[in-house]
């Protein structure tokens, strides 16, 4: 079932238990294979976890939870939907999903980039952080559910709102104390966490934002001009220390 060419391999994941699939991936990567195609993924968890080389994994089907969790370098392309915990605590690399993703997408990530063509579930981008030039990026083509960007300590989160009338999420950016969210259209004040400020995009914001939109469009074939000319707002933390005055000594 495997066709091994130089540095490129295809795995048919039909009926393979996740542990065996991941062991196989580890073994292939250690042999120096750089391009891996997984066909017929069917819920196998943790694909890409513990792979610390810049390999490319192209998945057809439906990978399971925690796709690319703790991942440190690979690029994963999914032709289908991703489940919960995509890019959980990831450190570096890229995940591109030609479909939608479930809850806790990119939870607590420290770096890397995730592009989701459609929408994501609840608690996306919770507690992503940044240090120096290590800035995680989550670009969502559609929208997200409640608690998106909660406790954000850094990073860039984009909600392009394609084919979305209104963003349904509440508690957006609750406890946010770092990073930035760019969001198409607007949201009601009651949808925002108390710690979130709203502003127009600055020149600097525009540079980052344009780059991310262009990359999104490169992956999914949308027209960047169409997206860029729409109205976007910037959500930012009002303070780096939202709970500094909560306590007495």
């Amino acid at each position: 079932m495997e066709k091994t060419r130089t540095r490129k391999t295809t795995i048919d994941a039909t009926g393979i238990y996740y542990r065996d699939l991941n062991a196989k991936l580890r073994s292939l990567v250690s042999q120096g294979i750089e391009d891996i195609e997984i066909l017929n993924a069917y819920g196998q968890r943790y694909i890409g976890t513990d792979l610390n080389k810049p390999v490319t994994i192209e998945i057809t089907g439906t990978p399971g939870n925690d796709l690319g969790s703790f991942m440190d370098g690979p690029t994963i392309i999914v032709h289908g939907n991703a489940q919960d915990g995509t890019g959980n605590t990831m450190n570096a690399g890229k995940i591109i999903v030609h479909g939608r993703a479930g809850d806790t997408t990119m939870l607590s990530a420290r770096g890397g980039e995730i592009y989701i063509r459609d929408s994501v579930g609840y608690r996306a981008g919770i507690h992503i952080k940044e240090y120096g030039d290590k800035i995680p990026v989550l670009v969502i083509g559609g929208t997200a559910q409640d608690f998106v960007g909660e406790y954000m300590a850094g990073g860039v989160l984009v909600l392009l709102g394609i084919n979305v009338e209104n963003h349904p999420a509440s508690y957006i950016g609750t406890g946010m104390h770092g990073g930035v969210i760019y969001l198409r259209g607007r949201v009601e004040e009651h949808q925002l966490g108390k710690e979130v400020g709203v502003a127009e995009l600055s020149e600097t914001d525009r540079v980052t934002f344009t780059r991310l939109v262009q990359e999104y469009c490169r992956h999914f074939g949308n027209n960047a001009e169409d997206i860029l000319k729409q109205d976007f707002i910037k959500l930012y933390p009002k303070t780096l220390r939202p709970y500094g005055r909560l306590y007495t000594y």
């Binding site: 300590a153 850094g154 406890g175 939202p242």
Partner: peptide
């Protein structure tokens, strides 16, 4: 891996 001087907040649950 967080900015200097920023509060380091650990949420009550692991989300």
């Amino acid at each position: 891996m967080i900015p200097r001087g920023s509060d380091a907040l650990s949420p009550a649950p692991q989300h």
